[in-house]
Amino acid sequence: MAKRPTSQNVADMAGVSKWTVIRAFTPGASITEESRAKVMAAAGQLNYRPNLLARSLATNLTHQVAILVDDFENPHKLPVLERLTLELQAEGLVPMLVNINERFGHVHALLNAGQRQVDAVILFGTAFRNETLQDARLEGAAPMFVLARDSQIPGVPAISCDATIAIEELCAHLREQGYRRPGFMAGPQTLSTALGRRRSFKTFWVRHGVEHVPELPAKSYSMTSGAEAVRHYLQETSAGDRIDVLMCENDALALGALDVLRSEFGLRVPQDIAVAGFDNIMFADAPAYDLTTYEQPIEDMVKTTIDMILGRRERQTVQLRGRLVVRGSTKRT
């Protein structure tokens, strides 16, 4: 294997010092355009690329960002990851995806990321808890950011869709359509990821005279769990006592519920039971589902997170407004 060219090789060919080569590849460094042009020409001929690892030792920055994900069953994750990694790379940052599971927990992942000297950690999942992330071993860890979820962790900013506004808009639409017996399907709840959607949903209906809002608990944010939850509810509840609209905490749950309502119980949507979701995933607008949902402002959330990581914006919790998308699964008129 051929030996890689060094900065000294480039300097010799360009007729400049080694430090001039280093400045030429350092954004914002002081160097004349003439010297930069010489360095770049020589680097091109030698096929030279700067050693980022060596640079990180000098700057104390690795330009690596760890992304911790713990619920890959949720189809909403893919478009967000696509946008997030695209924007990180555009800023010269290297995303490092970490699969959190029963064998590789959050503390283990954060300690591992610390050893790799990542510049920041983005928590993009549902299972992390306050007490876990406040483990004494994590003292001095890289700055953490929670994306697309609420956070109750002191010092850890959350960048999310404003759940209060979103649910208010969704519920106002449902009430306008004449629904009066609402139910809510919630995914697994943890201390630090209480999404606020369930709370806002119940608050709206209590304010409008509906004291009891049945809850359909789901084991995970997946179509399978959504199907299981609605199946159990329909089996245990007589037709006359059932809800007339089901709000699901995310679209994956809603799609699973729709499949069971129609194919297993022969119910009409929305005539017998209406269904709404949250996220506006790629399958939501398919004719088979035609799901009313709420679209999160992914691009704005991602850009806000990266601005905080790069110090262009103060690190603080931010809630952004999304967009209501009305489709046939709730429209009576």
Rank of each mutant, 00 (worst) to 15 (best):
241 D>Q: 15
229 A>M: 08
252 A>W: 06
224 T>A: 15
239 A>S: 13
234 L>S: 06
229 A>E: 05
241 D>V: 01
249 E>I: 02
257 A>F: 11
230 V>T: 14
235 Q>N: 14
249 E>V: 02
257 A>D: 04
231 R>N: 14
246 L>V: 04
256 G>Q: 03
241 D>R: 13
232 H>Q: 15
247 M>P: 00
233 Y>F: 15
239 A>C: 01
234 L>I: 13
237 T>E: 06
239 A>D: 13
258 L>Y: 02
256 G>I: 09
234 L>C: 08
254 A>S: 07
225 S>W: 09
224 T>W: 00
226 G>A: 11
241 D>M: 05
242 R>P: 08
237 T>K: 07
253 L>D: 02
227 A>Y: 09
245 V>W: 08
242 R>F: 11
235 Q>A: 12
234 L>H: 10
224 T>Q: 15
229 A>C: 08
223 M>G: 02
249 E>D: 13
238 S>G: 15
251 D>G: 07
230 V>L: 11
226 G>H: 09
231 R>Y: 01
256 G>A: 01
253 L>R: 04
258 L>I: 15
238 S>C: 04
225 S>H: 07
223 M>V: 03
230 V>D: 05
229 A>H: 11
231 R>F: 00
230 V>N: 05
228 E>M: 12
247 M>T: 11
248 C>E: 08
244 D>Y: 10
258 L>W: 04
251 D>L: 04
240 G>M: 03
247 M>D: 00
236 E>K: 14
254 A>V: 11
251 D>E: 05
250 N>K: 05
228 E>F: 01
227 A>W: 09
255 L>E: 09
250 N>I: 12
255 L>S: 07
241 D>S: 14
252 A>P: 05
257 A>H: 08
224 T>P: 00
227 A>S: 15
228 E>V: 08
235 Q>Y: 00
225 S>G: 07
247 M>R: 01
244 D>S: 07
233 Y>R: 06
238 S>F: 01
237 T>G: 04
246 L>Q: 10
244 D>A: 02
231 R>W: 04
233 Y>E: 03
